[in-house]
Computed example of a mutant assay.
Amino acid sequence: MTATATEPARTEPAIRLAGITKSYRELQVLRGVDLDVEPGSIVALLGSNGAGKTTLVRILSSLLKADGGTATVNGFDVAAQAGDVRLSISLTGQFAAVDEVLTGRENLVLVARLRHLPDPGPVADRMLARFSLTDAGGRRAGTYSGGMRRRLDIAMSLVGDPPIVFLDEPTTGLDPQARIEVWQTVKALAAGGTTVLLTTQYLDEAEQLADRIAVLHEGTIIRHGTLAELKRLLPAATVEYVEKQPTLEEVFLALVGGDAAEAPRAQDAMAPEDATVPQDAARTEGGPR
């Protein structure tokens, strides 16, 4: 018998969109969106304000019904199996949804109880350690910096270890240091096997985080691929050399046929070394005697 190679198991996408449309009365927001997200990857949905990014995330998280097309998350149909979809995901919106009166640890314990986890305290402690918030766990969340609040917000979303995470513009309004902290958190999620779909309007953020980038424009994904693949679509760069503008002195010397190296400096012409300072000027410079 002739041995045949065994085909590798085919993995279903963690997220699959096919022909998704959505309109608000006369305004068509999504115009047939197709997208696959592989398990354990980070995909950035890149687009300007109003491109339809948040609407798409709300559809995927079963908060909004699409007008047409199909969407599956973790193998579950978003429209027909919304309950299973919600058990498979976490959603972090554009603004941190933490209770600022509670401490960081109390916020995490609250979420663990809402998820009906049997032992919320140790779960909260593990999440604080995972997101480098142990020292701040006993402080009110209202005293946290923007980056710390965002990290706590993501930690709350990950209580229960959902396999798929949606991050809707996770660094909106953060300062550069806080953005870097959130980027490190997102990278750690993917390194642990979590599938991440994030929306952003920042190209540098997509470059820093994403395995693949989908460009959403006017409700349609116009390009999708790795950063290198998208860069190859750009036209060849043109380098234009512009000569340095000559000084007024250089223009004058060019007209009279002189040499800039031999030209006297303006201050030398006005005050030659052998010039004698008049006595009146000396007395004036020194002031009254």
Rank of each mutant, 00 (worst) to 15 (best):
V239L: 14
T199D: 03
P246F: 01
L248Q: 11
L152H: 06
A178E: 05
T185E: 01
D125L: 06
R139T: 13
P118C: 00
Q245L: 13
S145V: 12
E243W: 00
L234H: 07
H217R: 14
A155P: 05
G258F: 06
G138T: 11
M148A: 06
R223M: 11
T226C: 05
I221T: 10
R150H: 06
H224I: 00
S157W: 04
T226Y: 05
V186D: 00
T195N: 02
R150P: 10
K187G: 10
G219K: 10
T226K: 05
K231D: 10
L128M: 04
R232L: 09
V123D: 09
V215C: 08
F166L: 07
A260P: 15
K244M: 11
L174F: 01
T220A: 15
L198F: 14
D153A: 07
Y202N: 08
L248I: 10
M148L: 10
L203S: 09
G225K: 08
L255Y: 13
T226E: 04
A136V: 15
D125A: 11
V165A: 10
D259N: 14
Y144N: 08
P235F: 05
E205P: 03
D259K: 09
T172Q: 10
T185L: 01
G142S: 10
Q177K: 14
I221K: 07
W183P: 08
Q201G: 13
Y144K: 09
R130G: 11
R212V: 03
P162G: 08
R232G: 02
T226D: 02
L230I: 04
Y241A: 13
A191K: 14
I221S: 05
T238C: 09
V251M: 14
R150G: 06
P118H: 04
G219I: 11
L227K: 09
P246K: 02
V239A: 13
L216N: 06
I222Y: 09
L189G: 03
G192C: 01
E205S: 04
D125T: 13
E249V: 12
Q245K: 12
L209N: 09
L233M: 13
F131M: 08
G146A: 00
A124L: 03
A228Y: 01
A124K: 04
E207N: 13
A237E: 14
Q245E: 15
H217M: 07
L230Q: 07
P176Q: 05
R212L: 01
V182P: 08
A210W: 04
H217Q: 13
R140D: 04
G146V: 01
W183I: 02
Q208T: 15
I180L: 15
K187V: 02
R126Q: 13
Y241M: 10
E250P: 01
A228W: 00
Q184L: 11
S132K: 14
E240Q: 11
I180G: 04
E207P: 00
G160Y: 07
F131N: 07
D168L: 01
T226W: 05
I180P: 03
R126F: 04
K231W: 01
V242T: 14
T172Y: 06
